[in-house]
């Protein structure tokens, strides 16, 4: 059986979730591999959520927030941007390949942005294959460069 990636998406309630809903309303077809989890704000995404998803068997994680400047909570998505930049440094050291984590701004009327982000990460992760945990032994020294 061919490999079907499992991807978790974290969407902010106000823009991205509405954008993802709009994709459905417009009957825009996208890969069925992405399971959305609704947050109030992308700035409320705890880095632990991303790590937890990989621990539970996800092959990729998509994080979506409002466009910069459009955050429902004034500037929550700037905090997301900073947090994701730091988190990616950590996940790289953990051996999680770069394309497995994707940050995408999706406005409430940007259904196409959501659909293309879903398709892109699905294809990227499909090409990488399943995420195998603990490829890098913690404490072996090689994880931290």
């Amino acid at each position: 059986m061919s490999f079907e990636p499992k991807i978790v998406a974290f969407l902010c309630n106000w823009c991205s979730y509405a954008g993802a809903d709009l994709a459905g309303v417009s009957r825009a077809k996208c890969a069925p591999n992405v399971m959305s989890i609704r947050l109030m704000c992308s700035g409320g995404l705890e880095p632990a959520f991303v790590l937890k998803a990989f621990k539970e068997g996800a092959d990729g994680v998509l994080v979506c927030g409002c466009n910069l400047g459009d955050c429902h909570y004034i500037d929550g998505n700037y905090k997301t941007l900073m947090r994701m930049t730091l988190l990616k440094k950590l996940t790289r050291q953990l051996g999680i390949e770069e394309p497995r984590i994707r940050l995408q701004w999706v406005c409430a009327s940007c259904a196409e942005d959501f659909v293309s982000a879903v398709n892109k990460i699905t294809e990227d992760v499909r090409a990488l294959g399943p995420y195998r945990q603990n490829k890098v032994e913690v404490g072996s020294g090689s994880a931290i460069s």
Binding site: A20, G24, V25, S36
Partner: peptide, 23 residues
């Protein structure tokens, strides 16, 4: 949300049902 973010944006088939199960 198995309508907007599942049934409406996927083709009929086992993958759509599997996603609904997961959600």
């Amino acid at each position: 949300n198995i309508r907007e973010q599942c049934a409406w944006c996927h083709e009929h088939g086992p993958l759509a049902t599997e996603k609904a199960n997961r959600l």
